[in-house]
Computed example of a mutant assay.
Amino acid sequence: MAGHSKWANIRHKKAAQDAKRGKIFTKLIREIMVAARLGGGNPDANPRLRAAIAAAKAENMPKENIERAIKKGTGELEGESYEEITCEGYAPGGVAVLVEAMTDNRNRTISEIRHIFTRNGGNLGEAGCVAWMFHKNGLIVFDKGKYSEEELMEVALEAGAEDVKDQGDQYEVITDPADFLQVKQAFDERGMAYDMAEITMIPQTTVRVEDPKQAQQVLRLMELLEDHDDVQKAYANFDIPDELLQSVSA
């Protein structure tokens, strides 16, 4: 199974804990604010804002919180001003890591992200060093035991998805970011339950990590990056064998 799926699944399982600490809401509010600032407060005319609102609703964010974040983004209410930054680097074993962050202090955030890389056997690289290895797509993941590939393919392609991939015990539906919400809605309307649905960065190549110590370092680095208050998402192209993944992430 490709690295993005493995890390996304681990991150998905951590989400309940993160939600308890309020981290999920904080990150979603920042995304809504930035999306509204860049593309306006009308979700019908702003696909990024529409996706951000859908993600917030999926986490049961109260409607008033969403509306307040939109107004802060458009300037109707006073609020913090965040800028988007991307950091790129390598984890142990040559694993490529792409970090998306939102910050009100660029230098502080980059310094702290660099520190996380260095303390965990990685190194922060120059802009562009790994971004070319990733491609932005919509990703909807289904448990293989629930639906057949044919069932998923029929709905996915009719709704405008690009592909359906067999990934071991899961199927992945891949979409263009612009078509993600309509494909997701097609599954929702048919009552087809998915394990995860998000717009993500998918690695075009993966790096096999079979050394237990390196695998542990890679996962620790990813967890610490995503735990950072300013980091929205972290992506990596590792491919850790399932048995090793279970033992080091237990």
Rank of each mutant, 00 (worst) to 15 (best):
A2C: 00
A2V: 07
G3D: 14
K6N: 03
W7L: 09
I10Y: 13
R11E: 13
H12T: 02
A16S: 11
A16W: 11
D18W: 01
A19S: 12
K20Q: 14
R21W: 04
F25V: 11
K27F: 06
L28W: 11
R30V: 02
E31C: 09
I32R: 14
V34D: 15
V34H: 10
A35K: 08
L38V: 04
A45G: 11
A45I: 12
A45F: 15
P47Y: 03
R48Y: 04
R48Q: 08
R50D: 13
A52K: 08
A52M: 07
A55E: 00
A56G: 02
A56R: 07
K57L: 01
E59N: 08
N60T: 01
P62A: 11
K63F: 07
E64K: 02
E64Y: 10
R68T: 15
I70V: 13
K71Y: 08
K71D: 04
K72L: 13
G73L: 14
T74R: 14
G75C: 11
G75I: 14
E76I: 14
L77H: 15
S81G: 12
I85E: 04
T86N: 13
A91S: 10
P92V: 11
P92D: 13
V95F: 12
V95L: 10
V97R: 03
V99F: 13
E100F: 15
E100Y: 10
E100P: 00
T103E: 12
D104S: 15
N105T: 14
R106A: 13
I110S: 06
S111D: 11
I113K: 15
R119M: 14
R119E: 15
G121T: 10
G122I: 11
E126F: 13
G128K: 09
G128I: 07
G128Q: 01
C129V: 15
F134V: 02
G138V: 09
L139Y: 08
L139T: 05
V141H: 01
K144D: 01
K144V: 02
Y147T: 06
E149D: 03
E151T: 02
E151D: 01
L152D: 02
M153R: 05
V155I: 02
L157R: 03
G160S: 01
G160I: 01
G160W: 02
A161C: 05
D163S: 12
K165R: 07
D169Y: 05
Y171F: 11
Y171M: 01
E172P: 03
V173K: 03
T175H: 06
T175A: 09
D176A: 10
P177W: 10
D179K: 06
Q182P: 00
Q182T: 03
K184F: 02
A186C: 05
E189L: 08
E189C: 00
D195V: 15
M196S: 12
M196E: 15
M196K: 12
T200R: 13
T200Y: 14
I202W: 06
Q204Y: 03
T205A: 09
R208N: 01
V209Q: 12
E210P: 02
P212R: 05
K213C: 00
Q217A: 09
V218M: 15
R220K: 09
M222H: 01
M222R: 05
E226C: 14
D227L: 08
D230P: 03
V231Q: 07
A234F: 00
A234P: 00
N237P: 00
N237C: 01
D239F: 11
I240T: 05
Q246I: 05
S247D: 00
